[in-house]
Design a protein around this nucleic acid. Structure first.
Lengths: 125, 125
DNA sequence: ATATGTACCATCTGATGTAAGGGTACAAAT
DNA sequence: ATTTGTACCCTTACATCAGATGGTACATAT
């Protein structure tokens, strides 16, 4: 059902995310459907469980799937809506605008990078 | 007049910038004063000319000094005003706000970093 | 016991960026 | 000829991060 291309430039966890999202779009996965457990899927695809866990946690953040602890992981009730929304698309747009703003103010790319590193690492996440 | 600490964590070009700015603040340097040429200063401080050139070009961008080509480099007429304005202060403030905005939207620090790298490197400088 | 998600610890590889140095060359002036 | 700023080329050392993997452990359930 899910295939992984080890030679792709696309990261493994990202391939997982996109394939699950596509499965929801194409109705191969419906709200409430159970997903394979992290360790199961990792075993089938011969991936590390941490890689699958990363994909799952990001999918859960975007409300595409729902973790129910010891009961397993399921497709989120609003998954069909939420697969359309990609936070990274929004993020890339905003970032382009912000960087353009910094450059227009005369900042060097190097200075912008340093300020960015400060903002991300200084302010705890 | 200018001293460089090779063991400081502060980059050499940055030490140069700050010392020249301070010299303007404390009136040791006045508008119109000639600065040592890039190669001269590099020789005196035993630095690479590229390092001094970097400091000078950043100081010129901030209108603290003024390059007059073959005639040399001079303190900018509005230097006393402009040494007060540090673009990096503004940059750090803005960046903090923007990153906070991204995080509030649910973005991972890793995703934020990737989007940032895209925005800076994809869009030509 | 076994399985669930989750949270830590750690390591490694590859990519990228900064800071700094070194070289070479140019036009425009003295 | 020499000096000015400036613009390229390339290299080195160092740091950080992404991606991925491995191990261990936990509470909560069946």
């Amino acid at each position: 059902m899910i295939t992984i291309d080890l030679d792709s430039k696309e990261p493994l966890f990202s391939q997982l995310i996109n394939q699950i999202k596509k499965a929801v779009e194409t109705k191969k996965l419906s709200p409430g459907d159970a997903l394979p457990s992290i360790r199961q899927l990792a075993n089938e695809l011969e991936l590390n469980s941490k890689t699958v866990a990363k994909a799952y946690s990001l999918l859960e953040r975007d409300n595409v799937i729902e973790s129910k602890g010891y009961r397993g992981t399921f497709v989120h009730p609003q998954a069909p809506k939420n697969v359309q929304v990609d936070i990274n698309d929004w993020l890339n747009e905003q970032m382009q605008l912000d960087v353009a703003r910094y450059r227009k103010a005369g900042a060097t790319d190097s200075e912008i990078r340093i300020a960015f590193t400060n903002a991300v690492s200084q302010t705890g996440n």
